[in-house]
Design a protein around this nucleic acid. Sequence first.
DNA 1: ACATAAATTAAACACAAGTTTGAATTCTGT
DNA 2: ACAGAATTCAAACTTGTGTTTAATTTATGT
Lengths: 231, 231
Amino acid sequence: MTEDRQDTKNRLLDAAENLFSHKGFEEVSIRELAGAADVNVAAVNYHFQGKDNLYREVIRRRFIIQRDRTLAAIGRVLTENNGKPPLDSLIRSIVSLYLDASLSPKQDGAFLKLIVRESHSNGDHATPLFFKEMVAPVFRTFSNALMQARPRLEQEQVDWIIASIIGQIHHFIMRWQKRQSFPEDSEALQIMLNAFPALGLPVEEYIQEVTRHITQFSKAAIDTLYPEVSP
Amino acid sequence: MTEDRQDTKNRLLDAAENLFSHKGFEEVSIRELAGAADVNVAAVNYHFQGKDNLYREVIRRRFIIQRDRTLAAIGRVLTENNGKPPLDSLIRSIVSLYLDASLSPKQDGAFLKLIVRESHSNGDHATPLFFKEMVAPVFRTFSNALMQARPRLEQEQVDWIIASIIGQIHHFIMRWQKRQSFPEDSEALQIMLNAFPALGLPVEEYIQEVTRHITQFSKAAIDTLYPEVSP
DNA sequence: ACATAAATTAAACACAAGTTTGAATTCTGT
DNA sequence: ACAGAATTCAAACTTGTGTTTAATTTATGT
């Protein structure tokens, strides 16, 4: 029984993650969910006491994984450089981690769309959870690491820098998602590709190019605005 | 009759713009719409043949205004500087125009949320229209202006730069919206304000600060990555 | 092996959504 | 003033949603 319990519960969680991340909370019905997981419609309410709770569980499960990966990645860059990480290594590790997790089909797939979606959505389905368990720790750690890389930076300056970096990451993730959602021969897609040809690349190269751009763009801005004193 | 026709139709359009921009397409019901405009529920279908079409009309009406304002603003910066606009003036005019139109209550209010929402949404309610009539012309014009400001820039480099600027704009708009959606005493709001104190400012100052930051951040990056040749 | 608890199922419920209907009202041109 | 068209209205229709129910099946502990 505990065998089957975990089975249906996990099948539901897996299906939910898939569907939610591709279509969003509202756009996925319980019947669709149940169909994909091959369980009865009542299972959602039996095991999770409602759709909202299932969504929260999905988000939590993934958030924790990604949060831990992020903290680990930042920690790695720090220790590898004895507490004084190069700025570009730091930025690159964050950017590529999020792009990878969001876009790469080889990874866990599109699950990080959940995060982007959640941070842009208005629903209160999981927002408090999202902020408390995910945003806050990652922000603090990244913020501290940036101040290790550039000790003369003040907290407020770091806040602005992080906002600009995150904004770019989100935007390039969204662009890719949008690109994928268009029919291959649609006029809108043509316009999009014309305005931004990189969207025609394969995923891996897109991730690579975006990572390169955000990293060098942001580093250049930081170096110019807040120059290090020469030793 | 043509008097009343315009009256109910416009009342509906106005109410729709208000509600759609604050709550999004799905979250606004026809009954809510009709109630706010003080018309019968059937009016939407009578005058617009369905909710989708009403949404499209709302979007189009506002898109055209904002698009024309954008093109005019860029044109102004160009002529004021004899075709060689300073980079920061160019960026600042775009950024402040979009922040103003999106956040300022004195202006048309929150209508530009529509654009941000639309460019991040998955629905096909108005996306092709959005791309063809709005994104394409604005992109082309902004792109050309940037190449006037920095003649050595190549098209592909400009594409990346614009993406970074737009990404930042969207992100700061979203942050403000999200901030507004939180209860004043919620824990999530505390976390948010702690990670980004500028959200505690009044709107006008927020717009001012964000404009300043995006402008100098982006200009610094461009100047460093693609330096001008000295004459 | 059996009583009990857990889990699954098909069916129904309650509700809110967009839309349609057909009658009543208002406007328009003559 | 009147006929005909345009508009408004209350009400019903249709569909899809999340959830609940009550019966049935399956697993568990003794």
